Computed example of a mutant assay.
Amino acid sequence: MRIQAILIVSILLVFLTSCSNATDMREERESTLSKQKGDILVGVAWPFADRNEGFREGLELALGEINKKGVLGSKIRLVEKDDKSSVTDGLTIAQSFANDPELTAVIGHRSSVVTVPAAKVYDHAGLPLIAPSSTAPGLTAAGLDRVFRTIPDDTRLGKTMADYANAKHYKRVAIFYTNDEYGRGLANAFEDGAKAAGMQTIDRLSDYKDLNDLRRIADKWKLLGCDAVFLAEVMPDGAAFVADLRKAGLEVPVIGGDGLDSAALPAAAGGAAEGMVVASIFNPFAADDTAQAFVKQYESTYNAEPGKLAAQGYDALKLLAYALDKAGTREPSKLAKTLKETKGWQGASGLHTFDDNGDVSDMPIVLKQVEGGTFHYLN
């Protein structure tokens, strides 16, 4: 991890020091976009090939709706790049976006480990960033004034799952997490919430050697009276851990964060995910008109039920179009100001109001449980 952290910092320093003065970059973009005609260019960075999960389809659906009427007399054109969930690729893409003064804003990335360092590149270049998936608290804690997260952060997600665990009367919980920006942040938030609710974290770890090692760990957890496991992981590693945990002989309930909210979880875990409860931020059965219109249009277009990331892709672009129209200009400073002042904008995944840090503050968190090999909504 130390070597990886040094590599990330080194890459980021090279990018930032290779740029012109930040004020010059921001002013150039501001001047260019104040006079720009034609298509409004929006960069999108995402692991499209390997971890798309409906995100591109959500974007395309929103793009079609937006461009029927246009925005500020123009159409939006997406500049899509695949970051492969790689910090190196993500920062390379971020720098290419930063170097293009005709780019109005960026949507991305999927993984917090990529988005957190990339956000600094965008901020340096004056680019507003809409982050629809990265939940690490560090993304908006860095004092960047043009970052807007359209998903609850790990602090809220972790506390919600701790509250759920407390309501189920789990008292002694083990935590397994992925040792990166996402996993550490979510594990910390859950542990803090569990402690505040009077629960005890009996163990916390991020790795095991093999199935025999996990059997030893499971036996220890049994002796310590473990009555639930909180999993701060992403797919597909989360599914593999749950499958191994059941093979190791531990049958206590497993609950997890939004990184496990994937339709692939039940099948990937080979039945071991049955009964699992995970956090999400989108309910296709929500009663509000915006959600139902989105679901109907998505199913009609793609013959599939939309998931969380399809809704997030759709909302991110629709929100950006709304802000452009309300700002009345492509200038990033005014666009960012309009986004910061957004109150109660209704998207497919819920209301969007941003706090001073750029975090969405009123989006509901949904709980889902695996039953009969598929997800069912608990609220």
Rank of each mutant, 00 (worst) to 15 (best):
A232L: 00
D288P: 08
L260V: 00
R2T: 15
Q297P: 09
P364D: 12
K296F: 09
A348F: 06
T135Y: 05
V229W: 07
G249C: 14
D325V: 01
L317E: 10
K68Q: 15
E331D: 12
F97G: 04
G138R: 12
N379C: 04
L205K: 14
R146G: 04
A189T: 01
K195D: 10
R215V: 08
G307M: 08
A165H: 00
A240D: 12
A142H: 10
L260E: 02
T135E: 00
F55R: 03
L129S: 03
G373K: 10
L78D: 06
L78T: 09
F282Y: 06
G64V: 12
H124C: 13
R146V: 07
Q200T: 12
K168T: 02
K308F: 11
A327Q: 05
I40K: 01
K37I: 15
I40P: 00
R216Q: 15
S333E: 13
Y208K: 09
A272S: 03
D145F: 08
F97P: 00
P332C: 02
G347E: 08
A240G: 07
E191V: 09
N166V: 11
V254T: 08
E233K: 09
N212D: 10
K81P: 05
V234T: 13
A105L: 05
I281L: 12
M276Y: 08
S18E: 10
D145R: 09
A327W: 02
F294D: 07
T23G: 13
P117V: 10
